[in-house]
Computed example of a mutant assay.
Amino acid sequence: MDAAHPVDSARNDVVGTPVSAPVFVIGEEEPGDVAAREALLDRAMGQNRKRKSSEKLRRGRLPARGLALVARASDDTLVGTVRLWNVTLGEGGCDALLLGPLAVEPERKGEGIGSALMLEAIARARVLGHAAIVLVGDPEYYARFGFSAEKTGNLVMPGPFEKRRLLALELVPAALDGASGIISASEAIDAGSSRSRIRAAA
């Protein structure tokens, strides 16, 4: 899969070949993006974003390999971000991905950046062989990507959450059949991991 895809926001789709004057480009996050990503998240989600239950599953860990994506404007400014994380659904349950946070520069909302990031993240997760994606978000927004609460009724986040907002998407049919229990982080960073890698996951 290509490292980056130009996106024409007028058509609001990801395309595989260059278009004239792309409004933004989707690609993998780079080490130098950390400060810009964190500033964007603060602007888009507020200073209380790190108190959310999902943060407990991300803290001190790296995103799933190949699944930390950003949207860049034509001047290389970061205008969107999404990351996915390895989790386990219940004790002894199946492996899945936790999606989030998804954020777009407030001044660029309505240009299709969030949708493009979602579609690219789902496509990459499928190609990489992951079975399912879970997230906590508004059903009214994420339903367009196939997410629902149909199979999350017996799953629990490690902290306060709204049941109706715990959503999932199966990438492999029946992957979430019988899923139950507390969602927990998997593949935690080793204690010997370098400080720079830990900063990159913050």
Rank of each mutant, 00 (worst) to 15 (best):
A96K: 01
G16N: 14
A4Q: 12
A175H: 08
L40K: 11
L69M: 05
R164L: 03
P158R: 05
A188W: 00
A36Q: 15
R43G: 11
V87M: 06
G178Y: 00
S186V: 07
K109V: 08
L166K: 02
R65V: 10
G137V: 01
V70Q: 04
K50L: 15
R51G: 11
N86I: 02
D75Q: 10
L167Y: 00
Y141F: 15
P106A: 00
A175F: 13
S74W: 03
L169K: 02
K56E: 02
E55K: 03
L97R: 07
K151Y: 06
A143I: 01
A3G: 08
T88L: 01
L171A: 10
L176W: 01
A191G: 11
A149K: 01
L117R: 04
H5W: 15
F24W: 06
L99R: 05
E55S: 05
A143F: 03
V15M: 11
E187S: 13
V15S: 13
L69C: 08
S180N: 09
D2I: 09
D2S: 10
L67T: 08
D138N: 14
K163L: 01
A35W: 00
A10H: 11
A191K: 05
V104Y: 13
S184E: 12
L102W: 07
A200F: 11
G46P: 07
G66P: 12
S184L: 03
I133L: 12
S180Q: 15
L40R: 02
V79T: 13
D177Y: 01
D2K: 06
G114L: 07
T17H: 11
L102Y: 05
N154G: 08
A202E: 15
L78V: 09
N48D: 15
D13R: 15
P101M: 03
S9R: 13
A185E: 08
A71M: 02
S54F: 04
F147T: 05
A4F: 11
E170F: 08
R51H: 05
R197T: 10
A201Q: 12
V14D: 07
A202I: 05
M157S: 07
G153L: 02
G129C: 00
K163M: 00
L119E: 14
E170L: 07
L89Q: 02
